[in-house]
Design a protein around this nucleic acid. Structure first.
Lengths: 197, 197, 197, 197
DNA sequence: AATGAATGAGCCTTCATTCAT
DNA sequence: AATGAATGAAGGCTCATTCAT
């Protein structure tokens, strides 16, 4: 017996099913049927609500992205100190919400999708630039601009690299050690700058 | 015009065509027909020589891997000094052979494949462990064991992270800046260790 | 024009189309497309409902087998007299339902399939054993056990042999002469036993 | 180093390989490559000598058929007594040469081929008619024509039926019991005729 | 709101066959 | 005499997508 107002419920369920299914398989070679089954609905319904497979993927990416962005925003709200803000971003990147295996695998899959799908690339680009500007904004307050740009890129590359390794179940399985490695990177780089001054 | 002794020629051509095709598309969603056409042969021939799509992929990975390993081996041969050996590995990781866009994209695609294909994972695992032990072997000669392990992981993560970003055409398009960033990481980490002593 | 409740209708149509197509060709070298076309649906639908070619074949065998078994059961219900029961089985073996050219050819094709497909063999084994036990059960009531076993085997071999010849359009095209030949065999064998007593 | 006069050697080897391969698989779904490999030559050579797969099959049938005919001819040569000649034919049908599993399976496969291939059917027709006339010729000397025809058909059907069962590995695995069953059939039928006279 | 029914398009794979050597 | 090289054709199967209910 269909009830009104089911749309948001179904959409959310399908997006979560998509993450789960993609995560379990490790790539985007999942079928609409699998996702729909995992969400407990018919494939036709997934279609009805999203208009197509690609659009479901895009919506799923948007979900992941806005989830992450929301987390970062919250982390930044807690402190205005540059170094603390950087830590907030790092902590958020490896937070429980983001570092769930299925989510990590889905992220990696979307990284790949971005290579062939312009919309996915745009989405990822926005996220990348926002993350970068958050990092740079904080870093320029405690380091010369050139160094800030470099360190920001290093942080982002480290996060991505550790993510990949996590997705492949290599490296430390715990977020703590990932966070420590990046934090150490930041500390060492900043300390080196001060030493030179 | 069938001539004898074509097998090695065809195998090589098909592997190169696979890299090219995967690189152009950015993922493994390429058809045997596309690869075969790019190699100038019929799809049936690709099957004949490799036995199937997956085996062609695996052979292509092996090619990439052994190419890289050969480069590293050569780089290590030039010097016995620990720091120089590390630089050799980094330089090789971003060398002209490895940092070609198509090759980078193929690597990323294989990273993803490794999540669902046990053989691919095994292959990648061997490479990862070998790379790690090369790095650690050099680092332990100039740093405490714990630090050596951490820095080795940092280097590997940075390389992977910069690779991803390259594959997505983000970040520095030139190998030089990628190398500089990793080299700087090593220098800073090592310097910090000395300062602490 | 999709209407609900089509599944049983389609399954039946496809099974009948399979018999028809196999019968027309005389072997199992028929394509799913041919069968599907003959059933008036797309090949994809045949896969959807049966999961694959082999499973469609198996379902078709099961259909043939259960059809036959049902006929035998009915034939046995009409009489409890041993000799009459044997006649019932023979009559059923060459009855209008079973002796249709296409059906006969399909049977022969499945006999062959049974040599390479374990499931088909199992299916045929069940049928063979049931037929044999029905014959033996009746025969032991009017003949010594050893003779009963022999005659049962003779009947079965005659039925199969006449079937083959029918499939090849040799021998009598009419069921009547086939039935007469087998009946005569039974009569003569039983008479011989009595004469010897 | 190719030698002259290889043709008959290769042809024989390929035909035997064909019987072996078909027998092992239980049907005609064998590839030229499999047959050629089993004969120790290249697929191209099989082609060269026979002109095609179908023609190789036909040649194999002819081989089987003439082998059998030769055996029958020899069996008939030993005696002129009608009953003995019938026994000779039966014995030959289940003789060591003919009752080898692979050969039996190949026969069955060719029975099926005869349904779709006119040439195969013609070949089988000739054999069938010759066998029948041999049987009838002997039987008319000891039984009324109508009975002779009937018994001849019964013998042929029994042979075919027991063959099929042998091919499916049902029934007695030993030729002796098959022969006994058919012999018994002949004896009983003939005795019945005498009794009636 | 939701789904069963249905299909077109496409891909991997197999194989008989041909050809130059 | 013999074979490696190569392909065209075809079949099984999957899947996103559409449609009527």
């Amino acid at each position: 017996m269909p009830r009104v107002g089911m749309e948001p419920i179904r959409r959310k369920a399908l997006i979560e099913a998509a993450i789960e299914t993609i995560g379990a398989r490790g790539n985007l070679d999942v079928t609409m049927s699998q996702i729909a089954r995992s969400a407990g609905v018919s494939p036709a319904l997934a279609h009805h609500y999203f208009g197509g497979k690609n659009q479901l993927f895009l919506a799923t990416m948007r979900h992941l992205l806005s989830d992450f962005a929301e987390g970062v925003r919250e982390a930044l709200r807690t402190s205005d100190a540059p170094r603390a803000r950087i830590s907030g971003i790092i902590r958020q990147s490896f937070g429980p919400d983001q570092f769930v295996p299925a989510t990590v695998a889905a992220w990696l899959a979307f990284y790949v999708l971005a290579q062939s799908d312009p919309q996915a690339r745009r989405l990822l680009g926005i996220y990348g630039r926002r993350l970068n500007s958050n990092l740079v904004d904080a870093l320029v307050r405690i380091a010369p601009r050139a160094a800030a740009l470099r360190i920001a890129e290093g942080i982002a590359a480290l996060i991505d690299g550790l993510y990949i390794r996590r997705a492949l179940k290599h490296g430390p399985p715990d977020p703590a050690s990932a966070i420590a490695l990046v934090e150490n990177y930041v500390d060492t780089e900043l300390a080196a700058l001060e030493g030179r001054q």
